[in-house]
Amino acid sequence: MSLVFVHATLTLDGFLAGPNGEVDWMFDVPSAPEDQEVVDRVCANIGAVVGGANSTRTIEDDGIPYGGIVNAPVFLMTHTPAPPVERDGITYTFVVDDIAEAVESAKRAAGGKWVSLLGGSIGRQCLQLGLVDEIHLDVVPVLLGEGISLFGGLGMRVDLERLETSAFASETHLRFRVLEASV
């Protein structure tokens, strides 16, 4: 059975991106080979990705999940039906409004490997529906003060068990198991 996990790089104040979606801060910090080993280990286990975006922003403007280093099917949440798109060997399937179906489709496509949930809205919706097994965070030592929050607006308590913590050059890598969620 596939592990479903929220995966994000975020600032110390909990933002995925700046107010206008900018993520340049992610690339302004030093990293160590051990940081890359953590990323490589996670990416090697990913069998499918669920995200939210439109086809232009995600596929045509080089906003490819994981920069293309994960060669796995991608299921994108949308409000408008569209046929699947293939780019660089990756199939992008558009799922209209049913995130539970997107996760189930991703689990089938993952073939027992992990399903990565990308984006604040996607992660929050899946947590609210009880679809998340783990949360993996790569925290960068930057405070933006405002931006797009990972968990802002979740509206519920989620109890977690820490599974792994590591810190190297500048990133802190955190892995938690979701124990219980309640409104």
Rank of each mutant, 00 (worst) to 15 (best):
V38T: 07
A109P: 07
L129H: 11
L144T: 09
S116R: 07
V42C: 00
G51E: 08
D13G: 07
V132Y: 04
E37K: 13
G63W: 05
V95N: 04
P81D: 08
V183F: 02
L117Y: 06
I135Y: 01
S170G: 04
Q125W: 04
K113W: 01
E171C: 01
G152K: 09
I99W: 02
V132W: 04
R57N: 12
V115T: 05
G119E: 06
P30Q: 14
T11L: 06
S105N: 14
C126Y: 07
S116P: 08
R162I: 13
D61H: 12
E22Q: 14
Y92N: 05
Y66E: 03
L117S: 05
V103K: 03
P141V: 10
C43I: 00
G152S: 08
T80G: 01
E104I: 00
E60A: 13
V38N: 04
M1E: 13
L76N: 09
A48E: 07
V29E: 12
P19K: 14
D28W: 03
I135D: 01
H173L: 05
V49K: 02
P73I: 11
S166N: 07
I90P: 08
T93C: 09
D61C: 02
L163P: 06
Q128V: 03
G47P: 05
S166M: 02
F176C: 02
C43D: 13
A8S: 13
G147S: 10
P19G: 08
E60H: 15
G68L: 12
D24F: 03
E164D: 15
F151I: 14
K113V: 01
H79M: 09
L143E: 01
E161I: 04
L160Y: 09
A100L: 03
L129I: 00
E86P: 02
F27S: 06
E146C: 06
A53S: 15
A110G: 06
W25Q: 03
A106I: 07
G130N: 08
A169L: 05
G67Q: 13
L160K: 10
G145M: 12
L10A: 12
E164V: 01
W114G: 01
D13R: 11
R177T: 08
L10Q: 11
G68D: 11
V132M: 06
V85F: 06
V29P: 00
A72Y: 04
R41P: 00
V95D: 05
L179W: 06
G51P: 00
I148V: 15
G51W: 00
E146I: 03
T165C: 09
L154V: 10
T172L: 13
G147T: 10
T91G: 01
S116T: 10
R175Y: 06
I64E: 15
R177P: 02
T80I: 13
E146K: 15
S182G: 11
G14V: 09
S166A: 15
